[in-house]
Nucleic acid binder design. Structure first.
Length: 923
DNA sequence: ACGATCACGC
DNA sequence: AGAGTACGTGATCGTT
């Protein structure tokens, strides 16, 4: 029996909006990716015939996508069928019944599940948090086993899902088997879940009607006419067509290490080296490098030019020396070294070579108090005196990498300049990018929305090379690298080979994409050099007064204990105040306080709810205080103590490829959210202090986002206000409330400030209402008044939305792109959200770009002018520098100059600078 | 291990 | 019709 693969072109088009690899904003590439995916499924299930089904009318948002798909399928010679949307299921069902073929359906449309039966199965590409994008296969012959209910129940599950949500619908159906049984068991359900019971009761009729509507028979009933699906008998896919569709899978095979070799002896190395050297001589290209480390040592280095791949076991220092020689030869022949995350690698090498702060950290907590410090790392830290044994060349590699960067820098120390566009150029960045390539940064600029698991080599290769590569977890599960190296060396060679080959192959693709996007200089002149700046900031760290932090923590503990006892007394029983659930029960049931908002799982005990109750109920005030104390103690006092390395400094990690707008983020610890508003919290900042002979200089941009907005929009009112250096919130209030500048009340200023804030962060009228504790309507009124005052602003923001809708992307002043899939969503909320993002991303992103430029320039000049002052932190609009006292005036001038000239706007970039011995004093 | 809730910064 | 409302990091609780 021949096997047919029937593709639901419409729902696959729609899948684009759900974050599947078929991105509607990248339509042409998506179509290719989709076809390749279909091809791979056709091969997998040995489908002999392939039909694309388009239902008519085509949904508006995907018209273009579907047109491209239609054109592409026709070009590939694949059968295409147009069905009427209403009786599409019926037609397909009829076809399946009469032709008695083995059928595989490829669709994301749940209603297609109703076609499932013995010889019919369904494939859906899906996306989930746990598994990323993956493929779900429902075998028609094994419905009951897979889903827990019969195929006949599927329409009912779909109908129920619309009312109760998918999870509940499925669980009910598993228990009861059908809607009628469910309706007969209402009392039982009432006991288990009153909410479900109520919904069922209210919407009984609708559920039944819906269930009927999604059955394949529905088409027949509605149209009255049976138009059987007519498919050309001659739809066989030729091997050529299939090959064309599955190019991706073949390419993977080539990469899968057939040519990769594993080198475990010096002699073999020499053979491999000869082959590499021969490749180098062919000219320029990229050399992918992955380095595997296990706790205490550098284990393997995998190199790949795309043509040639080899894995080196770094069992000896000699081999490392040879690898270094090979890499040097590559660089000298004009090859670029490409890594996935270079900054991370630098830190890793430093750690293993005993020169990184990670080692200092593990030394201090050597007893394994922190889970990260596994036995190996601690062992190493304790034995670090004996470098010969443990350091299998990591130090050498680190030195070499750093020296490459240092060479580039020092040979050009006077050449950096500020161009008209306002950011860093000069030979430094060009030479840097000639030697180093960081693929994660390239990928981030192209896909700033990708996060976590979507954002690794395998996934990027999936998008840009249409390869379905297995990542570490799916190959080796939870096994550690060390275990894998011991037990499955061969498999590891192929894994490392594929990854490394992708590192050498991807840069070309990604760079040309970036060039088309106009983002290449952003990469070359901003993100890539910044990597080194961030590396040095992280490595430098910031000094902590450990004793003072401990005292602070103890002080908080006392406060917490007092408050706790007081609360227990006031409430009359002991409970866990940290548990929102228990707290809710105590406050709103036991004490009978008026409940405000609700959350999914009960009463909300959020601060804004409690604050309203605090006036009338002293205990609530104490709970709020308890929360404040608890937060400060656990996150800041205790949290920071855990992060202090034995050099008495904390070394944060700046994430450069996380946010959608281009901002940085900070973690382990997060130093971008150290308290500042409340005095008690702000005191933590006195623990961050400058080392002996140094002081802190802290400079922050004043309202950089609003200034950017003034510039980009060209709004005269806003520009004037900034040129005259007026209090912007007061000026806004004066305009919005039609009162003289001098007569603005504090409340009016507060409201104006909140609206300004809202514009900058892209919040909704709902959010503004929350902030100001006013109604959504009142908030909307403020926004309307605001735009009446700043008319040009409104126009500009409208233009931004229109442009984003047109281009499916929002741009910053420097060309950073933020894709805008939300604007094509069929969900109203999502589109609303998209509109706010379209207005916000260019503003916040431009501000982020500007401070990155400033950081680069400041850092370059500190190094270039031979100063020992160091850039330590960036907090979105603030830079913190540890300055040698003798250098203070010079550094002040540098900060002032470089922050001002980072961008040329129609309004001045104002900076507030302070100095002090601690962050508390300097801010 | 993971989601939900809460809280901190910008 | 009805949803659920800047982002990012981290702590804690309570369930799996």
């Amino acid at each position: 029996m021949s096997t047919w693969l029937i593709v639901d072109a419409n729902s696959i088009g729609k899948a684009a909006s759900q974050g599947l690899p078929f991105d509607p904003s990248e339509e042409e590439r998506s179509v290719t990716a989709m076809l390749s995916f279909v091809g791979s499924q056709a091969v997998k299930y040995q489908a002999t015939d392939l039909v694309f089904v388009f239902t008519d009318p085509v949904e508006e948002a995907y018209t273009h996508y579907n047109e491209l798909l239609l054109a592409a399928t026709k070009k590939a010679g694949i059968a295409v069928t147009l069905l009427e949307k209403d009786n599409c299921l019926h037609q397909l069902s009829h076809f399946i019944h009469t032709e008695s073929k083995k059928v595989i359906l490829l669709s994301n449309d749940r209603t297609w599940q109703t076609l499932l039966q013995g010889e019919v199965s369904l494939i859906s590409p899906e996306i989930s948090k746990e598994e990323g994008s993956h493929v779900v296969h429902l075998d028609g012959a094994r419905i009951k086993e897979t889903l827990g209910y019969e195929a006949e129940s599927i329409p009912e599950v779909i109908a129920l899902s619309g009312i109760l949500g998918e999870a509940m619908a499925k669980s009910l159906m598993k228990t009861y088997g059908s809607i009628s049984t469910i309706l007969l068991s209402m009392e039982e359900i009432r006991g288990k879940s009153p909410r479900t019971w109520q919904r069922l009761l209210e919407q009984k009729g609708e559920i039944l009607a819906k269930a009927l509507k999604v059955t394949p028979e529905a088409g027949k009933v509605d149209s009255g006419v049976i138009s059987p699906l007519s498919i050309d008998e001659d739809t066989k896919i030729s091997p050529e067509q299939l090959a064309a569709l599955t190019e991706g899978t073949k390419a993977e095979k080539k990469l899968l290490g057939e040519d990769a070799i594993y080198v475990d002896s010096l002699q073999m190395f020499h053979e491999a080296a000869k082959r590499f050297e021969a490749t180098f001589e062919k000219g320029t290209g990229f050399l992918g490098i992955t380095i595997e480390t296990t706790g205490s040592a550098l284990e393997t280095v995998c190199l790949s030019t795309g043509e040639d791949t080899a894995l080196f076991d770094l069992g000896s220092k000699d081999l490392m020396k040879q690898v270094k020689k090979l890499l040097t030869a590559a660089v000298e022949s004009g090859w670029t070294l490409s890594f996935w995350n270079l900054k991370h690698l630098l830190h890793q090498c430093g750690k293993i070579a005993g020169r990184g702060y990670d080692v200092l950290l593990s030394e201090q907590i050597g007893d394994g108090m922190k889970q990260e410090a596994d036995g190996q790392l601690c062992l190493f830290a304790m034995e670090k005196e004996d470098e010969k044994e443990n350091d299998r060349g990591a130090g050498e590699l680190l030195d070499w990498l750093c020296s490459l960067e240092e060479d580039v820098f020092s040979s050009e120390k006077d050449s950096f300049s500020v161009t008209d566009r306002g950011y860093f150029t000069g030979e430094y960045s060009k030479k840097l990018s000639r030697i180093f390539c960081d693929v994660s940064l390239l990928a981030y600029l192209l896909m700033p929305l990708s996060t976590g698991k979507d954002f690794d080599i395998e996934k990027v290769a999936g998008v840009y090379r249409k390869l379905e590569l297995k990542d570490y977890k799916s190959r080796f599960g939870k096994k550690s690298v060390r275990e894998v190296l011991e037990e499955k060396r061969e498999a590891y060679v192929s894994y490392a080979g594929v990854r490394t080959a992708m590192l050498s192959e991807l840069p070309g693709d990604l760079m040309s994409e970036l060039k088309e996007d106009g983002q290449y200089s952003l990469y070359e002149e901003m993100e890539l050099p910044l990597l080194f700046t961030l590396y040095s900031m992280e490595k430098e760290g910031i000094a902590m007064d450990t004793a003072a932090l401990r005292r602070y923590g103890e002080e908080l503990s006392e406060g917490i204990l007092k408050l706790q006892e007081q609360i227990y007394q006031e409430v009359g029983e002991e409970f866990n105040i940290n548990s929102p659930k228990q707290l809710g029960t105590i406050l709103f049931e036991k004490l009978g306080l008026p409940a405000g908002k609700k959350t999914k799982s009960g009463y909300s005990t959020a601060a804004d709810v409690l604050e309203k109750l605090a006036e009338d109920y002293p205990v609530v005030e104490h709970i709020l205080q308890y929360r404040t104390f608890g937060k400060l103690k656990s996150t800041y006092a205790d949290g920071l103590l855990d992060c202090i390395a034995s050099d008495q400094r904390v070394h944060t990690t700046f994430q450069q490829a996380v946010t959608a707008t281009g901002r940085l983020s900070s973690s382990d610890p997060n130093l971008q959210n150290i308290p500042v508003r409340i005095e008690l919290g702000k005191r933590i900042r006195s623990v961050f202090h400058a080392k002996e002979g140094y002081v802190f200089l802290d400079a922050d941009y004043s309202q950089i986002e609003l200034r950017v907005l003034a510039h980009l929009s060209g709004d005269q009112q806003l520009i004037e206000a900034y040129r005259k250096d007026r209090d912007i919130h007061r000026a806004t209030a004066a305009l919005v409330f039609h009162v003289p500048f001098e007569e603005v009340t504090p409340q009016q200023r507060r409201a104006a400030k909140a609206v300004n804030f809202g514009i900058v962060y892209g919040i909704s009228s709902f959010g503004l209402g929350q902030n100001l504790d006013i109604s959504r309507q009142q908030a909307q009124q403020y926004i309307d008044d605001y735009f009446r005052a700043y008319t040009r602003l409104q126009e500009y923001l409208d233009e931004l939305v229109a442009a984003a809708k047109r281009d499916h992307v929002a741009l910053t002043m420097f060309g950073r792109r933020r894709p805008m899939p939300e604007l094509s969503s069929s969900i109203y909320m999502q589109r609303q959200f998209g509109e706010r993002v379209a207005m916000n991303a260019p503003i916040q992103g431009t501000a982020a770009d500007i401070i990155k430029i400033a950081m680069l320039h400041v850092w370059q000049r500190l190094r270039g002018e031979g100063l020992s002052s160091k850039l330590l932190l960036q907090v979105h609009d603030e830079l913190l520098i540890e300055t040698k006292i003798e250098e203070k005036e010079q550094v002040k001038a540098i900060l002032d100059e470089e922050m001002h000239r980072a961008a040329h706007l129609l309004v001045p970039l104002a900076i507030d600078m302070e100095e002090g011995n601690s962050w508390y004093d300097a801010h």
